[in-house]
Write a protein that binds this DNA or RNA. Sequence first.
DNA 1: TATTGTTATACTCTATAACTATA
DNA 2: TATAGTTATAGAGTATAACAATA
Lengths: 159, 159
Amino acid sequence: MANGETTKPPAPDVGTHPDLGFMHPLAQLTSLVTTRVITLAEKNGLTPTQARILGLLLNGPQRMATIAQGLDIEKTAMTGLIDRAEARGLVERTVIPHDRRSTNVTATPAGKAAARAFYSQLNDTLEELIAELPPRDREAFRSYAEKIVGSVSGVCPNA
Amino acid sequence: MANGETTKPPAPDVGTHPDLGFMHPLAQLTSLVTTRVITLAEKNGLTPTQARILGLLLNGPQRMATIAQGLDIEKTAMTGLIDRAEARGLVERTVIPHDRRSTNVTATPAGKAAARAFYSQLNDTLEELIAELPPRDREAFRSYAEKIVGSVSGVCPNA
DNA sequence: TATTGTTATACTCTATAACTATA
DNA sequence: TATAGTTATAGAGTATAACAATA
């Protein structure tokens, strides 16, 4: 929104797949959550990718390479990503004294605020979704999700 | 892959968020599934969006406007989307006799095959994830997901 | 020589605005 | 006039290849 965003709005239902039956409930749930992530990012003036980057930077300044690794994207994509985030005042590039090849990226106060708001709202939203379940089932669902995620290596928590 | 794809590979973990604690398990699960969707689409020579479009077209030919509505994207984005899918031999534009303004989009045999493979493999993959749970909990988890999805309007089942 | 980041280039997805053809 | 699709334009995200600066 803020600076002529182009991020797209949620994507609703698409029908059934006759040859395959209804889509898997876990696939539908994933779409639902993804939609919420996009909406909340927009609401906070972020793209989903910017939200992920800022989530990382809440741990403190990170080198470009570290961020790239965290997002599992090529380092070449980082330059533009950080350029745009910097242009929006979300992050800043700072120098690393010991290694003049490296660059540290720091979240600005505005960037941190946006990220905190985003993740907090995301948490609330997800809790609201779970609240659709009867109270006694909510904890079970949460623990199932944890178990599944925990059983697999390399899960990206941000969007 | 097929025609110089640019789709990106999975995105792994990103760490914890000190100010917010660990990411919500449902957010992590969503990322996990999204990663699988991207990987499976690639494996079948599709972009995730193409997989969604083809999923729709398994129901039979659809007009551009209908597809746009199904994906919840602007009709202006459809032209390029279908152009690219057509260039890859996944779909074809056909004429509608009664209304010469409209265009029907039909999945080619190759497009249908790719879509069926994708959705079938996605189903298998999601079942494998659920299989991480003890047998007696799997059905409960599925029903929880269904309940949450069912409680909300407008959920997009494809990718 | 190996590493860090950048630039050049290209492609996908998506949006808004203006336009064409048809109804 | 209203609707279906296209074109023009723009911006975000991502990738591969080649390169510069530093270690």
